[in-house]
Amino acid sequence: MHEQLRQLRDRAEQIVAADMWSYLNRGSGDERTVQEAHDAWDRYRLRPRVLRDVAQVSTAVDLFGRWRTPIGVAPTAFHALLHADGEVATGAGASAAGAPMVVSSRATRRIEEVAAAVGGPWWFQVYLMRERAITGALIERAAAAGATAMVLTADTPYVGHRARSAARSRPLPLSDEQALTNMRDHLPADVADIWDAIDQRADLSLADIAWVAETSGLPVLVKGVLRTDDALACVEAGASGIWVSNHGGRQLDRAVPTAAALPEIVAAVGDSVPVVVDGGVRDGFDALTALALGARAVMLGRPIMWALAAGGRDAVSATLIELTAELRHAMGLAGAAQLADLAGSMVTGR
């Protein structure tokens, strides 16, 4: 783990309430998927190229928006429980670093506020809720506020069992007002159970990709893919991108690490759509490995939350800038002047 991240994690742990810290960092089941995440990246080794002009190294990426770095912010819920400014601070920090930002359906600041803080391209993460009209309204709002892509989370038909948590559906400090920040305006007048209405649907299908695309008018990435057949089916159904993710080990325990699934999925989809990955990335070398294996962007979850809790906007920005600097330096040493120069031949699992 990058030393700056380690310090932020330790500082955040001292600040954040114990129950919230557990909610943020725990995984499902015996947490094997969480434990294996970073080690799976660390097992790869690099085969650098030599005699390449790396006097100038660029990490710029064009992916449903243009950013200065391919290291971005994965969608996570309830940022206001970690910092008073919530997703506004996260978005401003990502923007200052020129990094991609994905805003969660379960954000604790209004979509429009976060969009203003980002001030540029961003993506919106979609949970298909049991009350579909709520989901549709959020999608339309996000598109109107300037989102450039939708991220359909497909691996959460219901929440995974998390052993370190009490049997409750949301973290203890979360108020109804915070949880319903972006949904309150769209609740049906006759809804009998608010929490049932905003819970995830368990009957998702490939047809929902087209529904999200039609509702938003934007490209849709499908997040939570770990199999090549699923990746190909999603592309066939209209997905504009595949996001390799195991939900940070918070859903199906013993699911394969994303570092293991990524090369197979990249090989399967080829150049038809871009592939994004998250899970266990903790430094610039992890990011370099993922990008060389074919990912177009590498997203961070918990590390961004540690930074947000420890230092708000400035810490989020500094974290992304520092990891990008480490990536840029590693790219130069590996003989890659730009992201397009990275290739699978530069990585070996042995």
Rank of each mutant, 00 (worst) to 15 (best):
D271N: 14
A96H: 11
A142R: 04
P75C: 06
W41H: 11
G335C: 03
F124S: 07
V276W: 00
A179P: 09
V225K: 02
E177H: 15
D283P: 04
H186A: 12
R227S: 10
I194R: 12
T148P: 04
I194S: 07
A60L: 05
V73P: 03
A189S: 11
R6C: 14
D253L: 05
P263Q: 05
I71K: 05
L138H: 09
Q338F: 03
V73H: 15
E3Y: 10
A143C: 08
E36S: 13
V102N: 01
P303M: 07
R170S: 13
G248F: 01
P219W: 03
S95T: 13
E131W: 00
A334W: 00
W243E: 01
R141F: 04
I139H: 00
L300T: 08
V266T: 06
I321V: 13
S317P: 02
M346R: 06
G349K: 15
P274N: 09
E87I: 12
P70M: 00
V277S: 03
V102H: 05
A189T: 11
M150H: 05
R164A: 15
G146V: 03
R32D: 08
N182W: 05
R68S: 13
E326L: 04
A163N: 15
I15Y: 07
A144W: 00
A143M: 07
S22E: 12
M305D: 14
S58Y: 00
G27C: 11
S22F: 06
A213F: 10
A179I: 04
